[in-house]
Design a protein around this nucleic acid. Structure first.
Length: 215
DNA sequence: CTCCCGATAT
DNA sequence: ATATCAGGAG
């Protein structure tokens, strides 16, 4: 087990490199309201953000409020979001989540982590993204498929459970970087550390990576 | 742990 | 054909 201090040191170096590369990153999902972002993040499960943006651009012209989704037949929501995959679960969650927002929060997206996680289809990953993006709030670190893969490769964690990964990262990453860290890792995951065919030769953080350091 | 699931790159 | 994509619920 590598020391926590050594991990912090390497994490800060990775952050420095990626900060210089990506600057001040923002969410790649398109939205105009907190609710639109919440729905977009729910749709982004196991789906590219490019696909989600194609779907939401069309859909939000028709429905973009909790009241409208709550009133819409489930089959119609399914049709609108079908191409994002898992469409039956997602449609059910979006509709139920909309009803919960109306009943409990006057149709507005709540800020507290506990409240967000209590909504249908909203887990810690989705809640972290919305809180960080909308209100710049962070009492957690977004752990998606990219963060899971890269933090293991970089050796910051040795763990597959996303909740445990998040807790470990919260010990290693200084809080001021909690929001941007995930953005950096995800952007690097798309640009260089692509799961299907990583471009280790061109990777800016290969010296900190289990794959890249062999190149 | 399994299931949900279409689109895309390889 | 197969792996992967800003996961969450049962």
């Amino acid at each position: 087990m590598e020391g926590i201090l050594r991990k912090k040191e390497r994490a800060l170096k990775v952050i420095e490199v990626l900060q210089n590369k990506f600057g001040h990153p923002k969410c790649a999902l398109n939205y105009t309201t907190p609710f639109e972002l919440l729905v977009a993040v729910i749709l982004s499960a196991q789906c590219t953000d490019v696909r989600v943006n194609i779907v939401t651009e069309n859909m939000y012209k028709i429905v973009n409020t909790p009241e409208q989704f709550a009133a819409m037949p489930l089959e119609d929501i399914e049709t609108l979001i079908k191409s994002t995959g898992f469409y039956r679960n997602k449609a059910k969650n979006i509709k139920l989540c909309s009803q919960q927002l109306i009943e409990k929060y006057d149709g507005k997206v709540p800020q507290e982590m506990d409240e967000l996680v209590g909504l249908a289809g909203v887990g810690r990953k989705t809640a972290n993204v919305v809180r960080g993006e909308i209100w710049r709030l962070a009492d957690g670190i977004t752990v998606d498929t990219h963060v899971k893969r890269l933090t293991n490769l970089i050796g910051l964690v040795n763990e597959q459970d996303v909740i445990k990964i998040e807790k470990e990262l919260m010990k290693i990453i200084p809080k001021e970087y909690w929001i941007d860290f995930s953005h950096y890792i995800i952007l690097q995951g798309r640009d260089k550390c692509i799961a299907r065919r990583p471009k280790c030769l061109e990777c800016e953080i290969k010296m900190y990576c289990k794959h890249g350091e062999k190149v």
